[in-house]
Design a protein around this nucleic acid. Structure first.
Lengths: 108, 108
DNA sequence: TATCTAGGCATAGATATTCTAGGCCTTGGA
DNA sequence: TCCAAGGCCTAGAATATCTATGCCTAGATA
């Protein structure tokens, strides 16, 4: 988890969260996470696209081809109802595990 | 990261932290993490022992055979200087990544 | 016009980590 | 005598991430 590394298992949650306000395309998801995290997190494309594929298969997102603001052919992703549910679930699980970690770090 | 699942990549940090106050044996490490986390975290033995092996190889911990309070042959692990360093480093990296995650979850 | 850079999607393979599911031994109590 | 619990460990599957590519296009620039 050095420099700009992600915490494994959290990428899906971050993607879903970034999609919550509305559909955006893949490349922009990575940029958005980087920017919103104040450059602390960096999503590699080799992690991003496979993650999106997984989420498509699970039915958490849907994708439509379109054209970006910069006039490029892009794939817009948007949350499904199942995706919204999944996001809540992942946030809950993460918070719970995080509480556990903090307790151990604090009290050990 | 459901029920009692760990956040991947954090197990080493937790083990090192639990070893900080002094040597304890493997089985007790898992119990200690479970208990300190208020039962939120559960370390499986199939995760624990391989993790300890890795940390031995890296030189972050050392091990000595001994006898437990319950009169059983056990392996006591203790932090090395490198291990203490590693712990600090992992905590820093984790905190930084966590800040990033929180920022994304909050602002997206 | 030709070329380069950046935007953008995607996959293959290596690497790392965790979990499931076992195996094996010992101690102490019923 | 038997069994539950304490204790160490490994093999194999599953998962996720990263590195390194490949390919295509639009727009700027030489």
């Amino acid at each position: 988890m050095a420099k700009n590394e992600m915490i494994p298992g959290t990428l899906g949650m971050l993607i879903l969260r970034v999609l919550q306000p509305g559909p955006i395309h893949g490349y922009a998801i990575a940029q958005r996470i980087h920017q919103l995290s104040n450059e602390l997190l960096q999503v590699e494309e080799g992690s991003l696209y496979p993650a999106l594929q997984r989420m498509l298969l699970k039915g958490w997102v849907q994708a439509d081809w379109g054209v970006s603001e910069t006039n490029r052919k892009v794939r817009f992703y948007r949350l499904t109802a199942a995706g919204r549910k999944q996001l809540q679930s992942e946030i809950n699980d993460f918070d719970r595990a995080l509480q556990g970690i903090k307790a151990v770090l604090a009290k050990a």
